[in-house]
Design a protein around this nucleic acid. Structure first.
Lengths: 347, 347
DNA sequence: CATTAGCACTCCCTCTCCGAGAGTGCCAAT
DNA sequence: ATTGGCACTCTCGGAGAGGGAGTGCTAATG
């Protein structure tokens, strides 16, 4: 409520203890409980005094007079900022992650979906994994396949085993040999080019192409452009929504519905993960810090994955603000690191 | 409880009224309410008498002595069997479906996902659409694309615009020209063949191939076989799970979690939809009629889609046993019909 | 001056009690 | 066979009471 006072060490310790305890029980925490369970070296009265100050500072609040205290979003924020660095995974979790990633996984999409499952199981919250459609993997193949009734499919394969396809309308008279001819002409143009740039490359080369191929080329370029931009929503893998319904994570059923609904319509997930792609490191959004209206009862922990210098996607965990931040942050980081290594083969 | 008495007309009418009313309110229905709201031409006392008999027959039950009656699964079953034929869609719903299907949709997967969304929005329940990986669409193209580190991707396109890809391990020494050579050799074998049969065709042709291609061919066939059988789970499109959380559809939160969890792990959905593929027509599974343990608090309404003689997939709606069967059955049928027509181009 | 023990106070939670309301089953009359 | 009358049962909601947990304040203490 007042200004953004930096907390002295004792207040910080009290806040840490309070958050830790509240997160496990879900009950408001009183001064007595606090000094009983944690070796704070102070009496309940002193704790009460400090807690009063913490409340003035907006770090904790009482659901009603004469109840224990509950952390506010600001309180969680301080907890995360001051006590979260260097959190280590439990041996069990670490082992589980290591086991998961030593298994070879050949399918790109499969790997991402399973990673989402892992993350959800690990944290007991909903997990998302996102691979942006627009990325810097390199084109390995381009094919044109005629379908029924003047439709043709543009197929692009990247070096990371990702397939993108897009159906375009072409002149009905084009048969497969002609499509092959077009593909042969276009393929050399885009081989080794970044997927993101491929449409542009083709457009630029159109004037140099034989007249009868220009129309097809334009269609293909359009398909590529649309394919890379539009279908991002399909690149979101979401697992563990059922954990949201779990006992008492959210008090309000309406909230649960809102959150599950928002996650389901991938737009919100997409926004969150895209934001985190920009920042270089693990990102923690607590409650109202989320820009998305629907997510303001949640905390979202995300991290990009890839190599040091280049992120190829991001992943994260969504849960109630009352979550075990240390554990989850550690898990997200560890999984992101492993996934990045697995996909890039580096390091 | 007793035997499977065929109900006389009046009992049947009472049951119909009771189900209709209960489905809208969710409250146990009493004899007075029943004769007040429906023109049954009998007095409450008579209704009570009949209701007593219906209860003996196991069609309805009381949550506690001296409360109204609620339909049992058997009651719903009778309702569906006797009162559901020829149910018509509301004009609004019919229009909405028609509007949806006149828009051209080029992407197979997209079309299915959006259909699931439509069905969910239409019924206000969770909706699933399933396209089995093994089907009878015809192969239009086969490509081999080299990826990093001895992996190659087998790409197959079918005439309905479906792309299937599977990564296989090949000899590290194989470069793209050699893969192309292999693809050229294999492609003629499978062109126009049913996807389902393609792996078998290749295996049979292996002895006729040049020695140095036989290994690759076997790998490709294995990849095709695995691709067509294993990844069915990825062909399930699920939308609208958040509607499950809606007020009072299920009384028990634990049930909601169980159901959402089961839907999320596609296995259960897959089982249900595969079952319905076998039966030729719309199928209604009410509560305990579901073979899946997790679904016994739900009703599942599914229908295959495709042409008259050949189903190419199935779709359905999952909700609480307390649902508006007439409306939902009509919606499922209509959507299935339209989707089939759109995908096959037939009427 | 910070810390602490003591204490009165506040508020929630649970339990119980009670009356109203809804619905039933049965019985006797039609 | 149907119906009106009636006593009975059960749930639901509100009121009231007691217990418990936790607070803020004050005065005493090192």
């Amino acid at each position: 409520m007042v200004e953004n006072t930096p907390l002295d060490e004792r207040k910080s310790a009290i806040l840490r203890a309070l958050v830790s305890y509240y997160v496990t029980t879900g009950e408001p925490v009183g001064s007595k409980t606090l000094v009983d369970r944690f070796k704070l070296g102070i009496s309940p009265a002193t704790a009460r005094h400090e807690m009063g100050l913490l409340e003035e500072g907006g770090f904790i609040y009482q659901p009603h007079t004469s109840a224990g205290r509950i952390p506010t979003d600001v309180g969680y924020r301080h907890f995360v900022d001051s006590y979260t660095m260097g959190a280590r995974l439990s041996a069990g979790d670490a082992l589980r992650i290591r086991r998961f990633f030593v298994e070879p996984r050949w399918e790109f999409e499969d790997a991402l979906r399973q990673t989402a499952s892992l993350l959800s199981a690990l944290t007991d919250h909903a997990a998302v994994v996102f691979a942006p459609a627009v990325d810097r993997s390199l084109v390995r193949d381009l094919e044109l396949v005629g379908l029924i009734a003047g439709r043709a499919m543009v197929l692009v394969v990247t070096d990371m085993g990702r397939v993108q396809n897009h159906v375009v309308l072409v002149d009905e008279s084009l048969d497969q040999p002609e499509l092959d001819r077009a593909a042969s002409a276009l393929k050399p143009l885009v081989m080794g080019v970044e997927l993101e740039a491929s449409a542009r490359v083709i457009v630029q080369a159109i004037p140099t192409l034989p007249l009868d191929l220009r129309d097809v080329a334009a269609k293909v370029a359009a398909g590529l452009a649309e394919g890379t931009s539009q279908h991002e929503a399909e690149r979101v893998f979401l697992e563990g929504t059922s954990t949201m319904v779990d006992g008492g994570k959210f008090h309000d059923l309406e909230t649960v519905k809102q959150v599950v609904g928002a996650l389901e319509h991938r737009r919100v997930v997409l926004e969150m993960l895209a934001e985190s792609l920009g920042e270089g490191n693990v990102s923690v959004r607590i409650g109202a810090e989320n820009h998305q209206q629907e997510m303001q009862a949640c905390s979202v922990i995300t991290a990009p994955y890839g190599t040091e210098d280049r992120a190829i996607g991001s992943l994260g965990v969504v849960g109630p603000t009352r979550m075990d931040y240390r554990r989850i942050i550690a898990a997200v980081c560890e999984v992101a690191g492993n996934l990045g290594r697995m996909l890039t083969g580096k390091r």
